[in-house]
Simulated assay, not measured.
Amino acid sequence: MQDNSQPFYQLTPDTVMDAVESRGYLCDGRILALNSYENRVYQVGIEDETPLIAKFYRPNRWSDEQILEEHQLCFELDEQELPVVAPLRDEQGESLFQFQEYRFSLYPRRGGRAPELGDPDHLYRLGQTLGRFHLVGQAQPFQSRPALDIQTYGLNSIELIGRDFIPSSLREAYLSLTSDLIASIERCYAAAGDVRRIRVHGDCHGGNILWRDDTPNFVDFDDARMAPAVQDLWMLLTGDDRQQQQLQLAEVVEGYNEFADFDPRELHLVEALRTLRMLHYSAWLARRWEDPAFPRNFTWFNTERYWGEHILQLREQLSAMQEPPLQLL
Rank of each mutant, 00 (worst) to 15 (best):
Y124I: 02
D214W: 02
F97W: 14
P167E: 04
Y107D: 13
D149Y: 03
A260D: 15
R315E: 15
D121F: 00
R125P: 06
V230T: 02
Q92N: 12
R110D: 00
R132I: 04
R305T: 15
V16C: 07
R103E: 12
Y107Q: 12
Q243T: 13
D28T: 05
Q98W: 08
L236R: 05
A229N: 03
L32C: 10
Q243W: 01
T50P: 00
Q72T: 14
A19N: 06
R103P: 10
D291Y: 06
L68M: 13
G137T: 04
S144W: 08
R242L: 06
R296M: 12
E47I: 04
Y102G: 09
L106V: 11
L26K: 14
H201Q: 05
I31T: 04
T275V: 06
D240K: 15
R125D: 01
R265G: 08
E258H: 11
F8L: 00
L126T: 08
N4D: 14
L68S: 01
L175K: 07
P228T: 03
A224Q: 03
D232S: 06
A139E: 14
V270H: 03
E271I: 00
E316C: 11
R132C: 09
I46G: 09
F218K: 01
Q313S: 14
A260T: 06
L267M: 00
Q80W: 01
L26W: 00
D3H: 14
Y107S: 11
E65S: 15
P146S: 07
E91K: 08
F133T: 02
W307M: 09
V136E: 07
Q100D: 15
E266K: 13
L285V: 14
Q143F: 10
W211M: 01
I158D: 04
A54P: 12
A227D: 01
P264M: 07
P324T: 04
V20Y: 09
E70T: 13
D121G: 13
E159G: 04
V230H: 06
E254F: 11
L285A: 11
L328D: 14
F298M: 10
N60S: 14
H268F: 13
E101T: 12
Q140S: 15
E81S: 14
S179W: 05
F221V: 03
L273K: 00
E304R: 12
Q140G: 09
T215N: 01
A320F: 02
P295W: 08
R58F: 05
D18N: 14
I150H: 02
P264V: 01
E266N: 02
H201T: 03
M321S: 13
D213F: 05
S63H: 07
L130C: 10
R197Y: 12
V16I: 12
L276C: 13
T303V: 10
C188G: 12
H122K: 04
Y256A: 06
G29W: 09
E304F: 09
Q245L: 09
Q100K: 13
H71R: 02
A183E: 15
P13K: 04
C74L: 15
L135G: 10
H134Q: 04
L312R: 15
R125H: 05
L276I: 02
E258Y: 11
E47S: 03
R145N: 09
Q322I: 00
R274E: 13
H122Q: 08
R103M: 09
D220L: 03
S5W: 14
D261T: 15
